[in-house]
Design a protein around this nucleic acid. Structure first.
Length: 226
DNA sequence: ATATCGATTATCT
DNA sequence: GATAATCGATATG
């Protein structure tokens, strides 16, 4: 049996209650979990290593600060659904809605560690894996280290995925957990300011796995894990 | 290692 | 009309 299937058999979707909470709590606990894309012949999976929490209407940096509009309605809907937006005329970014229906909040996916379907990711990124049998880490980092990059690697677009239920393995895109996957948090979780925003810049609501090489924009002094 | 810039469009003021 | 939850390329120290 191919590796991708032995691995996928151990993954089960997170339930909706997981996401029906404060985005800061959800963000922290998403680290080490797995994003799954079921499309085409080969399943793509990657471990979640960096996320950011965006609170509801009271967080000036959140898209939901503008209120419940056509663009942000998913953030105000039931938890566990994909909020996908297009930014800078170039990139899609993936979030999962949090808090109970009626209350806004979400978590932005900022970086993943590729596990399976690596060649499919490379194809959609327009990149080449030098040695597909034994990919160099520098090749893998370019696939999913950054919110725009990971969206492209998972072929995520607004038309295809906005509003998708991420708690169902029947969806083409979903979030799963494995037994004992909290061990990926054993080296610790770091926090920092959120990236690329101009409002509420002081809030430390970016979360990432300490020492993980797939995390984007790590300050030089943190480059080596402690 | 850090800084700056262009690409390109949805959304809001 | 300005800005944006980014990326990749180029320039500079």
């Amino acid at each position: 049996m191919p590796d991708s299937q032995t691995l996928s058999a151990k993954i089960r979707p997170l339930d909706r209650a997981f996401f029906s909470r404060d985005p800061r709590r959800v963000a922290r606990e998403l680290l080490g979990k797995v994003l799954v894309r079921d499309a085409g012949r080969k399943r793509r999976t990657a471990r979640i290593v960096e996320v950011e929490a965006y609170l509801g209407e009271k967080d000036p940096a959140a898209h939901s600060a503008a209120g419940n509009t056509a663009r942000t309605s998913v953030l105000f809907g039931p938890p566990g659904h994909a909020y996908v937006y297009f930014i800078y005329g170039n990139h899609y970014c993936l979030n999962v809605s949090c808090e109970p229906a009626g209350q806004a909040g979400g978590v932005l996916f900022r970086a993943l560690e590729p596990l399976t379907g690596v060649e499919e990711m490379a194809r959609d990124r327009g990149l080449e894996i030098h040695d597909p049998k034994n990919p160099a880490i520098n090749d893998l980092i370019k696939l999913t280290s950054g919110p725009g990059r990971l969206s492209e690697a998972f072929a995520i677009t607004r038309v295809r995925d906005n509003g998708c239920d991420l708690t169902s393995s029947a969806s083409s895109l979903w979030i799963g957990e494995e037994i004992g996957d909290d061990r990926y948090r054993a080296r610790g979780i770091r926090t920092s300011r959120r990236i690329g925003i101009t409002k509420a810049v002081d809030k430390p609501w970016r979360y990432f796995l300490n020492g993980n090489p797939f995390v984007s924009r790590v300050p030089a002094k943190w480059r080596l894990s402690e």
